[in-house]
Amino acid sequence: MKKVALALLVFLSVAACKTNPFTGQRTLNFYPNSQIFPMAFAQYDQFLGENKVVKETDQAKMIVRVGQRIASAAERWLDANGYPGYLKDYKWEYNLVDDPTVNAWCMPGGKIVFYTGIMPICNGETGVAVVMGHEVAHALADHGAQRMSAGMLQQIGAVAGNVAIQDPQKRNMFNQAYGLGSTVGVMLPFSRSHETEADRIGLQIMAIAGYNPDEAAELWKRMKAQNSQAPPEFLSTHPSNDTRISNLTQWAPLAKEEARKFGVTSFK
């Protein structure tokens, strides 16, 4: 049984890879769009039906406007870099939900929600573009499917360990050590790497859409001022605010250079 689990682990790791067009790197992904997108779309519709969606306000219209510009910029980049049709299965949708939580998120396939609680942090359209670029980047890079794939591998590793270890006391010790080690040592860094990747891709896309990438670091300065009780970075799914501010400041000029390739020389 242990050998079967390990063989399955190796097979999945080798066979289920996909290239990230923005980084050129191979990524772990067991779930094709045809499988994961319908599930995500159904969950999104259910969420909207259970929450108060804000319609026809200036903020709600801005969310849609910015989302459409960002998605269009992403498609321009993909077409220009040899990935025509990459977005054919995406069904972009952008909604503002009445909720004080300071957050926004994106489901696989381009289903995006902004909470009203994040709007003061955005502080206008360019700030919305920072967050929107980040969320669109998660969808473009298949981060949702990758997290599900990593979770599957984590579960396979746990099953293999429990099958191999016969002694109950040692099995309990393994489960405790494996749970903590695989989470802090693998899953959390994996999640942080996705957030960092989405920051960088999002910065590039927002610049191509005509929004000033310098605003990204400013938004995270506001986020830092609003949330001073963040956990240590190594225990978090996200990089620290200071790390993000430093990265975004460093990457903003590079994003502007990329935007110039598409004729964008001035920014909102």
Rank of each mutant, 00 (worst) to 15 (best):
V159W: 07
S149Y: 05
A137D: 14
G151R: 03
V163L: 15
L188I: 13
T101K: 01
G110Y: 03
K170W: 06
Y178I: 00
N123C: 10
R200H: 03
L96C: 10
G133N: 03
E195M: 06
E125F: 08
C122R: 02
W105K: 01
T196A: 06
G202A: 06
V128K: 03
P100Y: 05
D98I: 00
G124P: 01
Q155S: 14
R200T: 10
R200E: 09
V131Q: 05
G144A: 13
V130H: 07
A137G: 12
V102A: 13
V102L: 10
R171W: 01
D199G: 09
T196D: 00
I156G: 03
Q154A: 13
R147A: 12
M107R: 06
E125G: 07
I112Y: 03
N175T: 04
S182D: 08
R200G: 02
G151M: 04
T101L: 02
R192M: 06
S193M: 09
N95H: 14
G117N: 06
E197Y: 06
D142E: 12
Y94V: 04
V113M: 10
P168C: 08
D142F: 11
I121P: 01
P108Q: 14
S182E: 08
S182N: 13
D98E: 13
N175K: 04
M107Y: 12
E125Y: 09
N172F: 00
G161N: 09
E195I: 00
M152S: 13
V131I: 14
V113L: 10
Y178L: 00
N95W: 00
Q166D: 14
G185V: 07
V131F: 06
V163G: 04
V128M: 15
G202R: 04
I156A: 08
H134P: 03
